[in-house]
């Protein structure tokens, strides 16, 4: 698949590359990993920073919709599991910021770009979590969609990113199972619980489909990213794979996917399904989702309120260093 895409890149034939660029591309073609200190095209570095940074931001903003229910988790065990899950997400943010740092950008710079709105995070986290069933739906659908995206990225060309992804995928797969477990419990529960589960699916279905990004025909820069192996599949391929995997899971739960046009297509061996409302997607990306202001506002507030804490630790480190020097 990858080789075909290189030829369809059109306008950037290999002959046009410098020796250095050609050698770089050939390493990627041979599935060699690119490591931090090695030469890389500026476009590769910048694209990776944007992609890894956005992923890291999604992990930390992603703490908020689930953090919203930690205090109200219905049992001690559910509370512990949800805490562990949200803690994992903060940990993913940490690995990813560290991976981005190997490309020459600091965590503080990336956070500044998030807080100023220059960098984005996944649109999905701008939707509210309204009932406990949303903790199930987020794990099942949102983490499920994330895994679809991230499993292939374990083979991505940039070494630190690929290695971070291996660890993240292990944890995400546990997250998805715990989400589905919540859904199973809700669907086997009281009529009210089952209704909550259906309502959660109704609200999270299309936003989950949006997580894969716009349709391939509208997706810019996809081909170059695929040539560099920092994107391994097209948006539509991953979305199709997600729908094909998820529909039987919904059926097993006895829930109805909120798409009247959803049906199995024998010829393509996959489901036909309705596209999400892309105008909503672009509105959410532009800052007009139901929770954009709260989510970003909460992150900015955490950062600003915490300035004295970070400054205090720096001041102590300076004092301690000065004392060590004085003692020498």
């Amino acid at each position: 698949m990858y080789a075909q895409l290189v030829t369809t890149e059109g306008g950037t034939p290999r002959e046009g590359m410098s020796d250095q660029e050609r050698a770089f591309q050939e390493r990627i073609d041979r599935n060699e990993k690119i490591e931090p200190k090695e030469w890389m095209p500026e476009g590769y570095r910048k694209t990776l920073i944007r992609q890894i940074g956005q992923h890291a931001h999604s992990e930390i903003v992603g703490q908020l919709p689930e953090g919203n229910w930690i205090g109200r988790a219905p049992t001690l065990e559910r509370k512990a599991i949800l805490l562990a899950k949200v803690q994992d997400e903060a940990g993913h943010g940490l690995y990813l910021y560290s991976a981005a740092e190997t490309l020459g950008v600091s965590r503080d710079e990336l956070l500044e770009a998030l807080h100023s709105g220059k960098m984005k995070y996944s649109s999905i986290f701008n939707y509210p979590t309204l009932t406990w069933a949303d903790m199930g739906a987020v794990g099942w659908l949102v983490d499920g969609a994330a895994i679809m995206n991230q499993v292939p990225l374990q083979r991505t060309s940039y070494g630190p990113y690929a290695r971070a992804m291996i660890r993240i995928c292990k944890e995400e797969s546990f997250h998805q199972r715990q989400g589905y477990d919540i859904m199973m419990k809700m669907c086997a529960g009281t009529p009210e619980q089952k209704a909550m589960a259906q309502d959660a699916l109704n609200r999270f279905w299309y936003p989950s489909l949006m997580m894969f990004g716009p349709s391939d025909k509208d997706s810019v820069h996809s081909e170059q990213s695929m040539a560099w192996k920092i994107k391994m599949n097209t948006n539509d391929e991953l979305r199709q794979r997600f729908v094909d995997q998820t529909v039987p899971q919904a059926e097993y739960l006895g829930l109805t996917v909120p798409d009247p046009d959803l049906r199995w297509n024998e010829d393509k061996g996959g489901y036909d399904f309705s596209e999400p409302d892309w105008s909503e997607f672009y509105a959410v990306i532009a800052g007009n989702g139901p929770c954009n202001a709260e989510r970003l506002g909460a992150r900015v507030k955490a950062w600003e309120d915490g300035a004295w804490f970070r400054d205090g630790l720096m001041a102590h480190a300076d004092k301690a260093r000065a004392r060590r020097v004085a003692a020498e």
Partner: peptide
């Protein structure tokens, strides 16, 4: 402690506080 989740002054603190909360919830069980 779990009220801090996602709101701590540094990512390391988010992780540490969630971890402590988790220890305490485990103990309380």
């Amino acid at each position: 402690l779990s009220e801090w989740c996602g709101h701590a002054p540094a990512l390391e603190e988010d992780i540490a506080l969630a971890n402590q909360a988790l220890d305490l919830i485990g103990q309380c069980q």
